[in-house]
């Protein structure tokens, strides 16, 4: 088949909430799911200001590291209250990789999403091929920290301790 050129990306703009907000967006798993945690964080710009017009989307395996049909695996949260919040379970290890969540960040001022990964502090990371491709001094930007009700993962789009973003 002939190759078709892909459609270019454009920013979500400041009014993304109109089209991209769902009531159940943050719920990768329903309330009351055993082992569920809240994954929360703030998105910062290059001046350290909180970005309140971003959208964070997550995609992950289930607790067994699988992507079976019927597994939602997807969460989305805007940041208008100062941060994002996703209700989920810790993913299991996908063969050959440490447990992780793929993350897209969209915002006004981002002409294309940026993609990062969340890893978790209690897992062994030494064999993970993706972390191995990142300089060790930047690993901490990819590892969430424990909180009372789950984990915290801040995203720094630019500047000091800039989050590692991936070219997918």
């Amino acid at each position: 088949m002939a190759e078709l050129p892909t459609t270019p990306s454009q920013t979500v703009g400041p009014y993304l909430h109109i089209g991209l907000t769902w009531d159940d967006g943050p719920y990768v798993v329903p309330e009351g799911t055993p082992g569920a945690v809240w994954l929360r964080g703030t998105v910062f710009d290059g001046a350290g200001q909180v970005i309140t017009d971003a959208l964070v989307e997550t995609w992950q395996a289930d607790v067994d590291g699988r992507f079976d049909p019927g597994w939602r695996g997807f969460g989305r949260s805007d940041t208008r209250d100062g941060g994002y919040a996703i209700h989920t379970v810790l993913p299991g290890a996908v063969p050959g990789q440490a447990p992780h969540i793929d993350v897209s960040v969209f915002a006004r001022g981002l002409l294309h999403r940026v993609v990062t990964r969340i890893y978790f502090p209690e897992h062994e990371h030494s064999d993970d091929p993706v972390l191995a491709s990142v300089p060790p001094e930047r690993h901490d930007t990819l590892i969430a920290t424990r909180t009372d009700d789950g984990y915290r993962f801040d995203v720094r789009i630019q500047g000091e301790r800039e989050t590692v973003f991936f070219d997918v």
């Binding site: 290059g46 006004r108 001022g109 491709s133 930047r138 789009i157 800039e162 991936f166």
Partner: peptide, 19 residues
């Protein structure tokens, strides 16, 4: 608005895996 909202570090190539 892109001025403070673009990464300044190069992106890290992520070869595609299951996720």
């Amino acid at each position: 608005s892109t001025a403070l909202r673009h990464p300044t570090q190069p992106l890290t190539l992520l070869p595609h895996r299951l996720t």
